[in-house]
Design a protein around this nucleic acid. Structure first.
Length: 222
DNA sequence: CCAGACGTTGTT
DNA sequence: GTCTGG
DNA sequence: CCAGACGTTGTT
DNA sequence: GTCTGG
């Protein structure tokens, strides 16, 4: 699954890679946790546009936002069946930008965190969905990360992994005119394991309070 | 029709 | 709001 | 995901 | 154990 990640890449590099417009300042994040604002890229019909949204999807009918804590991931296999995800899947798809994500592996009594990233160290995109909630003082935009079964690399740690989209699928995924949902679902597959890598990191990352660069350091190389 | 749920993961 | 279950 | 809280009343 | 908060 995916419950923690990083985005500590220069904004200029992100904009070169993802080619999106944005009207906000981005900051380096080493330990992003659910309920926090994350960088989402969608389409306005012409351009790709980046905005920040709260991680943890809150459906429009929810009385309060607590439900968002449980909606940080959405299973790819059942997107079009689940009431809360069906509409977002049909019309509110987005990219969620990232440059590494954390998974915890049980090793005896210990839980060892690992960071997964691309071998080429480039930023990448999770397949995501967003939603708008209007029962508060002002509109609240929230989002979720889609998961699928793990590839050979992730399998060592978990049986689920976030869906990572290849560059050449970005536009199809966020295209509001794409209504071939079978085609869209065919994008939601495990990412090629041989393009990815991982390494153990400090248990500093366990606490969302720790937001230092140490979170992304390979403890084997210390 | 109305009532009640609406979610994922991991662990037992 | 919308879907499933009864 | 992990960490940390988990409660009410009445009095100061 | 289960929920909320980050």
């Amino acid at each position: 699954m995916c419950g923690r990640f990083s985005l500590a890449t220069d904004q200029t590099i992100l904009q070169e890679h993802f080619e999106f417009l944005i009207h906000e300042e981005l900051e380096f994040r080493y330990n992003i946790a659910p309920s926090q604002d994350i960088l989402v890229v969608g389409s306005n019909g012409v351009d790709r546009v980046g905005t920040k949204m709260r991680w943890g999807l809150v459906p429009p009918w929810a009385k309060d936002t607590k439900i968002g804590y449980k909606m940080i991931n959405a299973r790819a296999e059942s997107l079009d069946e689940k009431v809360s995800f069906k509409r977002p899947f049909q019309s509110q798809r987005c990219l969620i930008l990232c440059d590494g994500f954390y998974e915890w592996k049980k090793e005896g009594n210990m839980k060892q965190p690992y960071r997964f990233m691309m071998k080429n160290n480039k930023p990448f995109a999770f397949a995501g969905l967003w939603e708008r909630w209007d029962k508060g003082d002002k509109p609240l935009f929230t989002c979720t990360i889609i998961t699928t079964k793990s590839n050979e690399l992730l399998e060592e740690v978990h049986d689920r992994m976030p869906v990572i989209l290849p560059e050449d699928k970005y536009d199809e995924w966020i295209d509001r005119n794409q209504t071939n949902y079978n085609d869209l679902k065919s994008l939601l597959v495990p990412y090629q394991a041989n393009l990815m890598d991982c390494y153990p990191v400090s248990s500093l990352v366990n606490s969302p309070k720790n937001e230092s660069k140490e979170c992304i350091v390979n403890v084997n190389s210390l």
